[in-house]
């Protein structure tokens, strides 16, 4: 049942991606309402699918790679939707919708079912807390990176005096920089809580806070990168293009920690033989 809604959501995200991208390439308007409605439709179906899985399983669906990717997509779309209501913009849609669609399609390659008995470590209240914080941080940093990409593009157009259609539909530099400034501490806050909750969970599960498994190490590297960014912004007053570049660099780190580490290394976060077939968290 929840899988039907999941598929509907994935298809809706895909359709809206196509609509948004064709809109950018062909239309002359400034708003792409049809694309947005498909995102909203997908978001509702997505929400139903997650809630349904929660009720069916009796615990928050966060144990598998499927769950992680699906929840990640859901958070990205949620933040995007809030931003759209404040300032509708087709360019952000043309980035958020495809990202959500790709995440959903990747998720669908994993099984949502927990075939083997779940490892005791995962039967803990720390699981939803840790995963929610980590993914919320990721989602915020994703949107921040999109704003960063838009900033760099818009800045280039203005500097080079190339005033075309894109220039007109992109938000102002100030808007994008404000988004960066506001998102940075929020994302950093979530990331920090994600790491702390992970450490507390590790302590209750294995008796030690920190075990230097690859996921932990790379999370720490990511954390330092964003801590440096917060410092540059607040203390040194970095803004604009530099801040936008950093948002992109940070995003690469986030993505590597999220996906790359799981594929390349093994550690506490890959519960081989446990419930996670290809764990991402």
């Amino acid at each position: 049942m929840h899988l039907i809604f999941f598929k509907v959501a994935a298809i809706f995200y895909l359709i809206s991606s196509v609509i948004y991208v064709t809109f950018l390439l062909r239309s002359k308007g400034t708003r792409c309402l049809s694309g947005f409605w498909f995102v909203i439709g997908g978001f509702l179906a997505h929400t139903i699918s997650i809630v349904h899985l929660f009720i069916a399983q009796g615990f928050l669906p966060m144990a598998t790679a499927f769950d992680a990717l699906s929840l990640f997509a859901w958070l990205v779309v949620a933040i995007f939707t809030v931003l759209q209501f404040r300032d509708p913009n087709p360019v952000l849609g043309a980035m958020a919708a495809p990202i959500a669609a790709v995440l959903m399609l990747t998720a669908s390659t994993f099984s949502y079912q927990i075939t083997q008995p779940i490892v005791p470590v995962l039967r803990s209240w720390w699981l939803p807390i840790h995963v929610s914080f980590a993914l919320a941080g990721n989602a915020v940093f994703t949107i921040m990176a999109m704003a960063g990409a838009m900033y760099i593009f818009q800045e280039r157009l203005i500097k080079r005096k190339k005033i075309g259609r894109f220039h007109r539909i992109l938000p102002s530099l100030e808007t994008l920089d404000t988004l960066n400034r506001r998102a940075l501490p929020i994302g950093f806050f979530f990331l920090t809580l994600g790491i702390i909750s992970g450490a507390l969970w590790a302590s209750s599960a294995w008796g030690s806070y920190w075990n230097w498994d690859p996921k932990e190490t790379w999370s720490l590297i990511t954390w330092f990168a964003y801590a440096a960014m917060v410092h540059q912004r607040l203390a040194l007053g970095w803004r604009g293009k530099k801040a936008a570049m950093l948002a992109l660099v940070g995003f690469v780190l986030v993505m590597f920690t999220f996906v790359g580490v799981s594929l390349l290394f093994s550690g506490h976060h890959s519960f081989v033989g446990g419930s996670m077939r290809t764990p991402l968290i």
């Binding site: 308007g29 220039h167 102002s172």
Partner: peptide, 22 residues
């Protein structure tokens, strides 16, 4: 897009200012 583009220098200047400074 008939009504979209600004067509006087003063107007373009203000539009650009808004694009940069919000």
């Amino acid at each position: 897009g008939v009504a979209l583009a600004a067509v006087s220098i003063a107007y373009v200047a203000v539009e650009l200012a808004k694009k940069i400074l919000g």
